[in-house]
Simulated assay, not measured.
Amino acid sequence: MAEEKPVADFTGRFALETGNGGRPEPTRGRVVMSRQRLVFVTADRRTTVPLTSVVDLVVGQVPSDMRALFDDSLTIAYRDGSATRTAVVEGDGDTIDRFTTVLFRALVTGRDVLVKHPARIGGRVTDATASPAKMTVSDDGVRFRTPDGGFCIDPGQVIDFTRTERSPDGTERPTLLVQHTDDGEAVTSLAAPASSRLVNLLGRYLRVEYDTLRSNIADMELTDPEKQVLVGIYATGGQIDFTSLLDGDAARVTRVLNSLEEQGLVDDGPDAVSLTPEGRVVVTERIEDVNV
Rank of each mutant, 00 (worst) to 15 (best):
Leu103Ile: 13
Phe99His: 08
Thr27Ile: 14
Arg23Leu: 13
Gly269Ser: 01
Val89Phe: 07
Gly184Arg: 06
Ala87Pro: 04
Val49Gln: 01
Thr52Arg: 09
Asn20Leu: 13
Ala130His: 11
Leu107Thr: 09
Glu285Pro: 04
Ser131Glu: 15
Asp249Val: 01
Tyr234Val: 06
Phe151Ile: 12
Thr47Asp: 15
Asp241Tyr: 02
Phe70Val: 04
Val290Ser: 01
Gly156Gln: 10
Arg30Asn: 13
Val187Glu: 00
Ser196Pro: 05
Phe144Met: 01
Val89Ser: 08
Gly149Tyr: 05
Thr27Val: 15
Gly91Lys: 00
Ala43Ser: 14
Thr212Asp: 13
Gly170Met: 03
Val231Asp: 01
Val102Trp: 01
Thr95Glu: 14
Thr75Lys: 10
Pro270Thr: 08
Val115Ile: 08
Ser244Gly: 14
Leu260His: 02
Lys5Phe: 06
Thr52Gly: 10
Phe151Arg: 12
Gly93Ala: 14
Ser64Gly: 07
Ala130Tyr: 10
Ala119Gln: 11
Ile159Trp: 06
Asp160Met: 04
Ala250Val: 12
Ala43Glu: 15
Arg35Val: 12
Leu57Gln: 05
Asp154Thr: 10
Asp97Gly: 09
Thr236His: 04
Ala251Thr: 10
Asp241Gln: 07
Gln157Asn: 14
Phe161Arg: 05
Gly110Met: 04
Arg173Ala: 08
Gln263Cys: 08
Val253Trp: 05
Met66Trp: 11
Leu57Asn: 06
Arg166Lys: 14
Val137Thr: 04
Leu74Arg: 02
Met66Arg: 13
Thr243Glu: 15
Arg280Phe: 06
Phe104Glu: 07
Ile76Glu: 09
Arg105His: 11
Ala133His: 02
Tyr78Val: 06
Val32Lys: 14
Val231Gly: 03
Val142Gly: 10
Tyr234His: 01
Ser196Gly: 09
Gln239Asn: 15
Thr126Glu: 09
Lys134Asp: 08
Gly123Ser: 03
Tyr205Phe: 15
Ala83Leu: 12
Asp169Met: 04
Ser64Ile: 07
Gly60Arg: 02
Lys116Phe: 07
Ala128Tyr: 00
Ser82Val: 13
Ile287Trp: 04
Ile287Cys: 03
Leu246Asp: 04
Glu165Tyr: 11
Met66Cys: 10
Ala191Trp: 06
Leu202Lys: 05
Val292Met: 09
Asp140Ile: 09
Arg67Ala: 09
Thr27Ser: 14
Asp56Pro: 03
Leu16Lys: 02
Ala87Trp: 08
Asn200Met: 11
Ser167Cys: 05
Gly12Asn: 09
Met135Ala: 11
Arg286Trp: 00
Ala87Asp: 07
Thr48His: 06
Val58Ser: 03
Gly149Cys: 04
Ala133Gln: 03
Arg79Ile: 05
Leu69Pro: 05
Leu222Met: 05
